[in-house]
Amino acid sequence: MPEGHSVHRIARQFDRNIVGRSVAASSPQGRFQEGAELIDGREAVAVRAVGKQMFLEFESELWLRVHLGMYGAWDFAGEILVDPTIASANGRMGQTNQRGTNLPAVFDDAGENSLTSIGAPRRARVHVRMSEQTTGLADEGEQWPPPVVGQVRLRLLTDVTCADLRGPTACELRTADEVAATIAALGPDPLVDDPATGEERFTAVVRRKPTPIGLLLMDQAVVSGIGNVYRAEILFRARLDPHTPGRDVPEEIVRGLWRDWTGLLAVGVETGQMMTMDDLDPEAYRRAMASRDDRHWVYHRAGLPCRVCGTAIVLEEMGARKLYWCPACQC
């Protein structure tokens, strides 16, 4: 499932390539035909990402709400103006404690380059897939608009840029009041809310809940954007047992969870990777950017030795999702 950093990256692509332009909308798959007809020909005027949801505003205060869910993804084609603050077609390195390292491009197994310096914005005639598992590049042919491939729920087309949506959990039109109500029901997002205010909200909620902290971190009403990968990694980095009731977690540790999420989210947006290991030397950082197996402390490492203590990493189900943790370090 795409986590919060992916949705913020997608919103930034929309801001640079779709917002401010009139959009031709269609639903090649047919499942969003009426909605596409309502926004067809309107100008996109604003975009917001909050947690795992994106809200694209069209003129006359009509909003498109998209939640990618487990399998959703946006594909961009045409002339893509890349945000210079994030890694996309070409990105700048942004992991904490790694700034200033001069490394050549590294493409991960999904085809994304997250290390080269980008400098000023640039246009490239490329195809960019924006989702957690499948971010990458492929040359696009000269045909315009590009042919529809697969089950496209919604196509948004400007004169030079195409955005195709596939497989979302939610794709619906909402009024401004409905969008405000949806956002109000979400927990704080470090890239949306004032960090200090968000920390207070998060801490207050967690500290009164008997629910295990491993479930609270996945509850989008408690904190926005954390998914399965970030949950496992944040808990390990805090050396916190995922079964601990929220109200029993010391306040300083709860605050540390929020601050760690704030930092990891910023790194994820900038690099395009859920990088959760710090203080890597240049070669280790290259490996981590190139391979997910070298990027995380415990996630997807069931049965393998803990990178810190050597104990076998445990895999269990919590909240209908897989949870990875170290029973020795997180006791």
Rank of each mutant, 00 (worst) to 15 (best):
G198S: 11
F202L: 05
P242N: 10
T271A: 08
G263A: 14
L240A: 08
V249K: 00
P210F: 05
D278I: 00
D248W: 06
S224E: 04
V206R: 03
Q273M: 04
G214M: 06
V192Q: 02
V205A: 13
L280N: 07
E251T: 14
P190A: 07
N228V: 10
K209F: 01
E199C: 14
P250Q: 07
Q220V: 01
G198V: 13
A196R: 04
D189P: 15
R255D: 15
G225C: 10
W258Q: 13
V229Q: 11
E252D: 15
L217I: 09
G227D: 10
T211C: 01
G227I: 09
P188M: 06
T197Q: 12
P195W: 02
A238N: 05
W258G: 08
F202T: 07
R207A: 14
G246N: 02
I253T: 15
P190H: 07
A185W: 03
E251P: 08
A204P: 00
S224G: 15
P250H: 13
V254K: 00
V269F: 04
W261N: 12
A221W: 05
V205C: 02
D241G: 03
D278S: 09
V192I: 03
W261H: 12
R207N: 10
S224N: 04
L280R: 14
T271D: 02
T271W: 00
V269K: 02
V206M: 03
V254C: 07
D260N: 05
M274W: 01
Q273E: 07
V205N: 01
G272N: 09
V205F: 06
A204Y: 01
G227E: 08
E200H: 04
K209P: 00
P195M: 01
